[in-house]
Each structure stands twice: as structure tokens, then as C-alpha cells.
């Protein structure tokens, strides 16, 4: 008997089913497990790129200040920015974004821990993107699951806030190895917390060579202009290309 698969007639000791089980076959697939999601993501990216819209996917823990930061960006970009909000329940966050001056569309995931490219594609179909230059996808608050899903954004950005602690980067390597922007939020609390910003940045560099760092306070707006300048620049270069 084949010790590996338990079939009764293993004549060839080489596994990999080089030996033939009558009526059975092994078929090579060779695809990324999330290939279907990735196809939707490419479609989303092609759509927004063709319309000259720059897009970011913001991923962070609950309570890190995603929506507060988006309100700050809303004051700056106004109707130039559209936000797709991923939330498990409630439309509270979308209402906050709209009050700040930008457009928002809420996806209620009803329990799912991340957004996928298919849901984002449907949101894009429903959205009027006329005049939109920046599309921000606010993912469900979670550092694990959203990391694996390409939504069709141009860049992934992670927010890490000071109260979370400076040890989070290496705990979530799947996320921090894939980001293009690291936003360190709530720096207005730096005198009260032992968050070592250089440590967090260096640990992120140990996973990822190419990312920009934005130290800011979404509440006081300190440092937010560096992020808005960066986004303006990326929006202009996408438009130019």
C-alpha cells in the first residue's frame, strides 16, 4: 500500500502521483489562491487609472484614527475625494466623511473581516466618479485579513497609532511587508506614551524597502500636510501619465 496516500497499488515509490491510480488524475493548476479576487482588482485598477483617479487602500486596527484622518483629508480635498467605507455594521463613518465635504459610499460587510475586489468593483459601479481625483478605500479595521486582498488600489497604506504600541509591525508582517505608506497617527500623544517611532519604522524596513513615512495627528492636523502634498503629487503624476 502507498504510505503517502493510502492507495492499494503503489508500484512506483515516487510520490506526486507518478504512479497511476486507475480512474484518477492529478491536474496542475498553478494559480494564486486569490486569483479570482486579483482579476477583479486588475479590472478596478484599470477603470480608475483610465479615469485619472489615484487610489489608496487604508488598513489599520479599529480605533487607529482612519475615519478621523479621512475627515482631515476631506477638509483638504473636498469633492475631489471619494471614500469607499468598509464597515462591519452601520453607516456612521460614511456620514462623518460626507460632513467633512467629500463623497462617501458605505459597504457594510455584515460580519466579513475585510473588503474584497468584487465588492469594491460593485461600489465603483454605483458611484458617480465624475470629478473624482482621489479614491480612498477605508478597509475594515483589522491588521490581518485585509492585507491579502488586492482591491485594485494603486497604493496600500497602513496606519499605526501611538496607543497601539511600537511592537505591532513584526506581529503583522503580511501587512507591513506590502505597504507603500506607513502613517504613524496620534503623535499629539507622544509625550504621554512610550512609542518608539524609529523602532517601528526600522522594523517595517526589515520587511519592506519601499515605503514613505507620515508622522501626523489627524486630530490636531500636525503633519497632515505632508500626506496631502504626497497625495497631490501622486494624483498629478497619474493624471500626467
Amino acid at each position: 500500500m502507498c504510505e503517502t496516500c493510502g492507495c492499494p497499488e503503489a508500484k512506483n515509490p515516487t510520490f506526486g502521483h507518478a504512479h497511476h491510480h486507475p480512474g484518477t488524475a492529478t491536474i496542475t493548476v498553478g494559480e494564486d489562491v486569490l486569483s479570482k479576487n486579483n482579476l477583479y482588482a486588475e479590472k478596478n485598477r484599470a477603470l480608475i487609472s483610465s479615469r485619472g483617479i489615484f487610489s489608496i487602500n487604508i488598513i489599520s486596527s479599529p480605533g487607529s484614527g482612519k475615519t478621523t484622518l479621512l475627515e482631515a483629508l476631506g477638509h483638504h480635498f473636498g469633492q475631489d475625494m471619494t471614500v469607499i467605507e468598509g464597515d462591519v455594521q452601520t453607516t456612521r463613518d460614511a456620514e462623518r466623511i460626507i460632513r467633512s465635504g467629500s463623497r462617501a459610499y458605505q459597504i457594510q460587510t455584515n460580519g466579513a473581516c475585510h473588503l474584497d475586489a468584487h465588492a469594491v468593483g460593485h461600489a465603483m459601479d454605483d458611484l458617480d466618479l465624475t470629478g473624482c481625483r482621489l479614491l480612498v478605500i477605508e478597509n475594515v479595521g483589522n491588521l490581518v485579513c485585509p492585507a491579502g486582498y488586492d482591491l485594485g488600489e494603486h497604493e496600500k497604506m497602513a496606519i499605526l497609532s501611538l496607543p497601539e504600541g511600537d511592537d505591532k509591525v513584526l506581529k503583522y508582517p503580511a501587512l507591513f511587508s506590502r505597504i507603500q505608506g506607513l502613517i504613524i497617527n496620534k503623535i499629539d500623544l507622544r509625550d504621554y506614551l512610550d512609542f518608539d517611532m524609529e523602532k517601528a519604522i526600522n522594523e517595517c524596513r526589515s520587511l519592506n524597502r519601499q515605503f514613505d513615512v507620515f508622522k501626523l495627528s489627524a486630530k490636531t492636523h500636525e503633519g497632515v500636510s505632508k500626506l496631502t502634498d504626497y497625495l497631490e503629487q501622486r494624483m498629478d503624476s497619474l493624471k500626467a501619465s
Binding site: H17, H21, G23, T24, A25, T26, I27, T28, V29, G30, E31, D32, V33, L34, G148, A174, S177
Partner: peptide, 12 residues
């Protein structure tokens, strides 16, 4: 960071 589906086994 690889996460791939490599092959499937099927039976008639």
C-alpha cells in the same frame, strides 16, 4: 509570502 493552488486530484 506565497499562497498558491498548485494542483487538484480528480477521480472519474
Amino acid at each position: 509570502d506565497r499562497f498558491t493552488i498548485d494542483a487538484i486530484d480528480v477521480e472519474e
